[in-house]
């Protein structure tokens, strides 16, 4: 398992089209520990999703570094980052499921390129679906699911491979309090297995959390610790 993710002077700027650029992340220095849940909050448009995308290697920072195991992942080429992402589970703000696949097939997706047999992939995926309580929907098309069920499917897809890193962007947005609690327990369980779990949420109540997380607030491109 990992020992954490460190970001050093992480900057992300987006061009605005008139020769100027908008600074979304401004020299962020932080360390996201393994074994704990890290919660990042902030107002809408603060750059929480951008930070998560940069940490998970989905996009490159304008400057600065993301360091994992002493390796500067942010400098790696695309294929290396793609391969590294096999250790990561990502839950997107919009579920980003493949709608012409069944729930089970969506969950199996991260396992297919790993060279495991189809039956192994299938049983692992069924196990993940069982954890999120969607076993009865395994054969359904994702397009037939409700928003909350899709979010649960995305959660199952993120945890199916026992990842060392989990990046969750608003994972409880469409869930009721009970389901949110269940999903948070699941993330906590993975954190206890020494995974780095980073959750981005702007409306999360602390009573949903099974333990006191490391909390950060992102505002105006600056990340500040909220609760130690």
């Amino acid at each position: 398992m990992s020992s954490g993710i460190t970001c050093h002077d992480l900057c992300v700027e987006f061009p605005m089209g008139n020769g100027k650029s908008r600074i979304v992340l401004d020299k962020i220095n932080a360390r996201f520990q393994a074994g704990k849940i890290t919660l990042i909050t902030g107002p809408v448009g603060a750059g929480k999703t951008t930070l998560l995308n940069t940490l998970s290697g989905l996009s490159r920072p304008t400057s600065g570094e993301v360091i994992v195991h002493g390796e500067t992942v942010s400098r790696w080429t695309g294929p290396h980052r793609d391969r590294w992402r096999r250790q990561a589970g990502i839950i997107f703000q919009h579920d980003h499921l493949l709608y012409d696949l069944t729930v089970l097939e969506n969950v199996m997706l991260p396992l297919i390129p790993l060279g495991r047999t189809l039956s192994t992939c299938r049983s692992q995926s069924m196990e993940a679906l069982k954890k999120v309580g969607l076993l009865h929907h395994a054969g359904s098309l994702t397009s037939s699911l409700s928003g909350g069920e899709r979010q649960k499917t995305a959660m199952a897809r993120a945890i199916v491979n026992q990842p060392a890193f989990i990046f969750a962007d608003e994972p409880f947005a469409h869930l009721d309090a009970k389901s949110s609690r269940q999903m948070m327990d699941l993330l906590y369980h993975h954190a206890c297995g020494n995974a780095v779990v980073i959750v981005v949420a702007h409306g999360l109540t602390l009573d949903t959390l099974p333990e006191t997380p490391l909390c950060y607030r992102l505002e105006n491109g600056v990340l500040n610790p909220l609760i130690a």
Binding site: L58, D82, Q87, H96, L97, L98, L109, P110, I112, N161
Partner: peptide, 15 residues
């Protein structure tokens, strides 16, 4: 977009 999701799930260009 589907390819993007697959890559996010750890599929390499080779895969």
């Amino acid at each position: 977009s589907d390819l993007g999701i697959m890559k996010a799930m750890g599929w390499t260009t080779g895969d």
